[in-house]
Design a protein around this nucleic acid. Structure first.
Lengths: 121, 121
DNA sequence: TTGTCATGTGAACAATTATTCATATGTTCA
DNA sequence: TGAACATATGAATAATTGTTCACATGACAA
């Protein structure tokens, strides 16, 4: 039953069944791959990249980031929420001001890997 | 002139001007940050993550990947183009069949960093 | 050359997402 | 308490993007 669906879905025949079966065994759980894509999606926006880079240099409040990037406070606040949900950023409140900072020591390493790739092209 | 625009754009005042100026000096070129975001955008789709993971296990032709992921050949082909443009994947032709494989040894390291982050949450 | 097979691709559509606008929340200070 | 300020957020809009569909391309074999 499952095979029939696969053939209906994919409009071509399996050429190397052994390779496909071997790779299928190696693949991680669907959920893991989905989560990984979701994480990289967070990195896949230049505004968020800029925010992360800025916070890697210093703890900053929302307003400062907005001025730095020349964007509205609202836009920054929305993006900070995305970054916080991804556990990449944390915040603390000091009176009226909310300070944001990095919440993951891997951010810089992920950046470095990406930069290495870019520079090789 | 530039400052006036910034103030018009951002509806709040600079609170920590010294921090903003310091961070501004640390920021890489706009273009670099943009390219970095574009690269991560490529990783930010579960279909492409699956393809990369599969090709990390074995060289495969388009048709095999389509069967493996239970998707149309066309969808896979479109995504392979994106991956190739990002220099993450390369291909070779053998008769009618085109074989794809990884073109970057950092893919696995980038995956690992991402997985490490996910597993820590 | 003609038919078949594997892959590539343009256009259309559907779905997702970043930003804006208006307004709400929460804190401080007078 | 009420005004002022920093930040958060829901809804709407604009832009981007993944998939499908139909068809084109390129290679091989008869």
């Amino acid at each position: 039953m499952r095979k029939v669906e696969a053939i209906e879905r994919c409009n071509c025949d399996v050429i190397h069944e052994d390779v496909v079966n071997h790779v299928k065994e190696q693949m991680p759980k669907e959920e893991t791959l989905y989560d990984l894509a979701e994480l990289f999606k967070v990195f896949g926006d230049s505004t968020r990249i800029k925010i992360l880079w800025a916070l890697d240099a210093a703890e900053m409040c929302v307003c400062d980031i907005a001025v730095l990037l020349n964007m509205t406070q609202s836009a920054i606040s929305h993006q900070l929420r995305v970054l916080k949900q991804a556990k990449l950023v944390k915040n603390r409140r000091d009176g009226k001001v909310v300070y944001y900072s990095l919440d993951d020591e891997h951010v810089r390493q992920i950046f470095d890997q990406g930069l290495t790739h870019i520079n090789e092209i």
